[in-house]
């Protein structure tokens, strides 16, 4: 099991050189997509993106907590690092899009109120992460129909798909049925 310091180095080492994939940038930041977001719906879209960004920043912090807890062992630690990297990509592209739309991206909080006292084992951390991912799936599902710009809705659905995969993998790691039903809510 890595020490917290080792885990932190591993974490930062893997995610520090974050490079957004061209596809991700194109999804959210393509000029064509943004050009379609004009008029009254633009600031509503910014608001939706900012709420999503707030949740992504929280997820990044949650995975950081998990990685630094010393409770995650290989290969689970590597999976968590990978998932945190995805959330960093989501956050970066959301922030960039918000700014392109003329909004101000929310920042990460100085402190998050995570249930640290309830995290005693690897399974506790996995359940905590799984709940966050499940919640994120619900949040994106509730946000997708609200976008004025359909390209942004499509991009949000792409993120939803990624987070649903995280949720399934975490359930699998917990020994649960990875995909418990045909639909998400």
């Amino acid at each position: 099991m890595p020490t917290p310091a080792t885990a932190r180095r591993l974490f930062l080492g893997r995610s520090g050189g974050l490079v957004l994939s061209g596809a991700a940038v194109a999804l959210l930041c393509g000029n064509d997509a943004l050009a379609a977001t004009t008029g009254g719906g633009k600031m509503e879209d910014v608001s939706i993106l900012n709420t999503a960004l707030g949740a992504e920043l929280e997820a990044i912090a949650a995975y950081q907590l998990g990685a630094e807890s010393g409770l995650l062992q290989k290969p689970v630690l590597g999976i968590a690092v990978s998932f945190q990297g995805h959330h960093k990509e989501h956050a970066a592209v959301l922030a960039k899009t918000i700014e392109k739309l003329g909004g101000k991206a929310v920042s990460a909080k100085d402190k998050y109120n995570f249930p640290v006292d309830q995290l005693k084992t690897q399974a506790d951390v996995l359940r905590f992460a799984a709940r966050l991912e499940q919640g994120a799936v619900s949040a994106y599902l509730g946000a997708v129909p609200l976008f004025g710009n359909r390209d942004l809705a499509k991009a949000a659905a792409s993120i939803l798909g990624d987070e649903a995969m995280h949720w399934a993998i975490l359930r699998q790691a917990l020994g649960e049925v990875p995909v418990p039903s045909a639909f998400v809510a």
């Binding site: 949740a55 499940q134 919640g135």
Partner: peptide
């Protein structure tokens, strides 16, 4: 479950 994306008790 859907609330827990953004809320805690």
């Amino acid at each position: 479950m859907r609330c827990q994306a953004c809320h805690a008790l």
